[in-house]
Amino acid sequence: MMHIHFSAYALTLFFSLISTHAVMAGSPPPNDGAQIILRDKEQDTCTLDVPAAGSGLTYRYELMVPGTKCRSFLTRSIEFIQLPSALRIFMSDDGWCSENTTELDQRFWIKLKTTKKATTVGINEITYLLTYKPNTIIGPGLMMEDSYEKVGGEVRDNLSCIKLVASRAFDTPWPPAATDRDRSWSPFASEDLHAFSCPTDTIMTGRQHNRDESGNTRYECATAVQSGASVAVQDKVWAAPLTESDGIYFVCPNNRIMTGRGHYKDENGNTRYECATASHAGRNLTVTPHEWGGSMSESNSEFHCPADQFLIGRRHTGDENGYTRYRCATLQ
């Protein structure tokens, strides 16, 4: 049986006790000293973690998303320290790391690749990196693969997304994608005072809501299965509250999936999301995000991730007549 109700007192406490520090776990610590340091025009810094060599992991830093390291940091220059070999680095002003310049009003994107172990390249402005031609060396071990810059586009201080893709060790086979099993709905609860967490070792795959904040909400959860065995769901952590009506895109941190959601009061009240790590045979699964789904009216909505995908993100803007979008991902 899924449980969704907390007492009114407990829920009020749940949404009012807001920590002043980050409560959502992100990527693991830097590997072997590898890190990427962002600098703004005042030379203040923010540091990004890097996936380990041979791990095959992808780290995405969507810098407008709550919970993301270096959120809203106005990057002017960048420094690379002890990066692993065959690491691909994609940087763009598009918040979702797209390179589809035909459909987006995109200012720039840059594709870099490391060609040796422990690649260290000093501070360079993003605008300076764009002066390098494809397949040229920027510094020892760092190659410009390709780039795009819109004529008349403003590059400086507009970096919005960084994607880091580590190579996979040749002797390590890529595991199959997880499938979903036994999707089931929770009981309905009042939208304006509830907190829900999927049952043990299950992951959120859908949500349904009717009417306004006094209407009903319920959630769909499922078991993930990889190589015939159920995936474990661990390290559940609630993110800091955000205002529901602000249109904020929330996405779970790198390689974490959504397991819970709570909401308090009307559209101007607080929403919190719970994210967790999925693991199988002692290995944390890789989460590969898909594109955001289309908008739907919140007041009479029902959403399910496609088969064998799991929820990692949600966005809502306005009141119950506003629109909601969801984002799903593959586990591997």
Rank of each mutant, 00 (worst) to 15 (best):
P173K: 07
A178M: 10
R211W: 10
F196G: 07
P187N: 02
R207L: 15
P199I: 05
T200W: 06
G215A: 08
T202W: 02
P187W: 02
V233L: 01
W185G: 13
S214V: 02
D212C: 09
T200N: 13
T172K: 15
A189K: 00
T202A: 05
D201V: 03
A195K: 13
Q226C: 10
T223P: 05
D180A: 10
A195N: 03
R168D: 01
A189L: 03
S167D: 15
A224N: 11
E213Q: 10
I162Q: 00
P199K: 13
E213P: 05
R207M: 14
G206P: 03
S184H: 13
P175K: 11
A177N: 15
D201Y: 04
P187S: 13
S197Y: 02
T200H: 05
K163N: 06
T205W: 03
T179S: 13
D182R: 07
A222S: 15
T205S: 12
N210A: 13
F188I: 01
E191Y: 12
T179H: 13
G215P: 09
S186H: 06
T217W: 01
V233S: 03
S227Y: 03
N210S: 07
P187R: 04
S184F: 11
P175R: 14
F170H: 05
M204F: 07
T179G: 13
I203R: 05
C221Y: 07
V231D: 05
S227A: 12
E220P: 06
V231Q: 04
C161R: 00
W185Q: 13
G228Y: 04
A195H: 01
R218S: 12
S214F: 08
E220D: 09
I162L: 07
N158G: 02
D201T: 04
S230E: 09
P173Y: 01
R218E: 11
C161Q: 00
L193R: 07
C161M: 01
T217M: 08
T202Q: 08
A189I: 03
L159T: 00
G206Y: 04
C198T: 10
Q226E: 09
Q208F: 08
C198R: 06
